[in-house]
Amino acid sequence: MNDNQRDWEVHPPYSYPPYASTVLRAPAKPLIPIKHSLSELTGPVYGHESLGKYDNDLTKNGIRNGEPLGERIVVSGQVLDQYGRPVRNTLVEIWQANAAGRYIHKVDQHNAPLDPNFFGGGRCVTDNEGNYTFFTIKPGAYPWGNHPNAWRPNHIHFSLFGSNITSRLVTQMYFPGDPLLAYDPIYQGVPEKGRELLISSFDLSLTQPDFALGYRFNIVLRGDKATPFENQ
């Protein structure tokens, strides 16, 4: 019916009982298909005017009295639609724990130190080829209450808009070789076909000498075949 349907062979289901929070929150009735109108084929546009000076540099945007602690990294990648076209001028928002595995969020009660010089949130806008870049600190793993001795793998949360409201994506980027991925129900909730797409790759060419190691994370959003709505 629509040519950019959500690909349910790669997206996780609503109900996934190993991730306990889904049990009372997952819609139980089947979704009702909707034929796309302008309400679906348009979406909000946030460009460079939305950005502050250090919004894409988390090694700087939380500084109060010194440098944030931990391993500095560069996270960069290209945002494409499912037909391989760069998604230009689209907002990318991220948030993450600090190097010790602690979020600045008031609800996070994990007994690991906050870093007075690390905020953990940032945003940027993709360039003409769909590329984005963040500088940040490698996030730590942290325990959570899903099951006994449950730990989240290191991850960075991502939020993107793309060309319309149907291409909206919230996801998480993981790191290569993390042994916790095998035990994480949030990651394992993704069908096998999609899992590898959530793992960044180490990239020496992105690494900035004497400053930060580089990781590449490319992102593919839904897109329309006809695509008149580039929103530039």
Binding site: G84, H105, T171, L198, I219
Partner: peptide, 13 residues
């Protein structure tokens, strides 16, 4: 065509 990047929860934070 490319495979869509899978969704993940927004989480509590």
């Amino acid at each position: 065509s490319y495979i869509q990047t899978p969704s993940q929860t927004v989480g509590p934070y």
